[in-house]
Amino acid sequence: MKSVERQIIEAVSRIAQCDEWVNLRLGIGDDTAVYVPSIGEDLLLTTDQVVEGTHFEREIHPAHALGYKTIARAVSDIAAMGGNSLCCLLSLCLPDWTRPDWLRHYLRGLSVAIGRFNIPLVGGDVARGEKFNATLSAVGSVSQTAALTRHNAEPGDRLYVSGLLGGSALGLKILREGGSSRRVAVRRHLYPEPRLALGRFLRNEVSASAAIDLSDGLSSDVIKLALASSVAIEIDVRSIPCYRGCSVDEAIVGGEEYELLFTVPAKVKVPGAFDHVPLTKIGTIKTGSGVKLRTENGLITLQDRGFHHFESQ
């Protein structure tokens, strides 16, 4: 009789989608996977976690959405670098409450994201623990030395953001209040869309100078970009694109957007949208340090009010 662990591994293997991947010499079933890199590419390596009680509340977050989001969170990092997704590895820590039916729905969501973002699952690990934890390590690629980073914004560049901000936080609020999971804002929270094609467009066609994905909120991530590039940033609050029903403050603070915040030289023309996703100029890069908001009452310093894991410590 097969052990529970073996049954779980076989269930994961069935949704891996790596059988026809030409660069994969060996996938799930051995001590490691074997990947053959292409000539002239840099590899992008990232990892992300989905932790019970930190990233989701099991009373309101469906298993299918958690599986999808496990992949999407890490893929968004690859998108911010202007890369292509290649493969991923998944480590699962499963508590007693993860019954077979719940796990089946989780793996279905995982499978949907694997196919949608073309990122085969090539290995991982499974263990038992007190709380659910999914650690997803993703591998992407980009042409050598061509990766978009946070470090190259220059004074005079323009600051843009994709999409509308605040929708994910609104969706979480609706879920907590018992609202329908069919609401558009709720689906935006449960099933984020990493901007892979947009990232490549920014790198190849727009010559963006820097980029970061919005996972912790605009107020936090724009400060990270300013610090990494050693520049100051000025944002016009009237230009921030807000999701319907959200205030500017909610758009600034809300996290888990997975939109792209990026800079381009002033002479570069940026289209108003890419693949039906609006691209909005919201600010300017300047010399100095820090981030300021231009309001009707003048300039004020932006405070980091995004999500921080160790805020209370």
Score class of each variant (00 low, 15 high):
211 A>E: 14
103 L>H: 04
130 E>I: 06
121 L>R: 10
56 F>M: 00
170 L>T: 14
185 A>F: 06
23 N>C: 11
216 D>L: 14
83 G>K: 00
95 P>K: 03
245 G>Y: 05
180 S>Q: 11
87 C>I: 07
265 P>W: 03
130 E>G: 07
253 V>I: 14
196 L>H: 07
144 Q>Y: 10
304 D>V: 03
147 A>C: 04
40 G>K: 01
57 E>V: 07
214 L>E: 13
185 A>V: 09
149 T>Y: 07
48 D>A: 08
224 K>A: 00
247 S>D: 08
204 N>A: 08
46 T>A: 10
278 P>A: 15
95 P>L: 09
259 E>Q: 04
235 I>K: 07
24 L>D: 10
131 K>Q: 05
156 G>V: 08
212 I>S: 15
161 V>F: 07
111 S>Q: 07
145 T>K: 00
267 K>A: 07
214 L>H: 02
223 I>F: 02
138 A>L: 03
9 I>M: 02
59 E>T: 15
259 E>N: 04
14 R>P: 04
183 R>Y: 06
110 L>Y: 00
162 S>H: 01
45 L>A: 11
179 G>H: 05
248 V>G: 04
21 W>T: 14
83 G>S: 02
156 G>F: 12
148 L>A: 03
154 E>C: 14
1 M>E: 10
128 R>V: 13
259 E>L: 09
29 G>R: 05
25 R>N: 02
120 P>V: 05
207 S>I: 01
211 A>H: 00
275 D>K: 12
240 I>T: 09
195 R>T: 01
159 L>M: 09
293 L>R: 01
249 D>I: 12
120 P>T: 04
180 S>L: 11
199 G>F: 08
74 A>W: 14
200 R>K: 13
189 H>R: 07
307 F>V: 14
111 S>E: 06
7 Q>Y: 01
275 D>N: 14
105 H>L: 02
284 T>G: 06
56 F>T: 03
208 A>R: 01
121 L>M: 13
9 I>T: 08
81 M>H: 14
32 T>L: 02
256 E>S: 08
122 V>F: 12
279 L>M: 00
257 E>P: 03
125 D>K: 05
209 S>W: 14
55 H>T: 03
152 N>W: 10
140 G>M: 03
55 H>C: 04
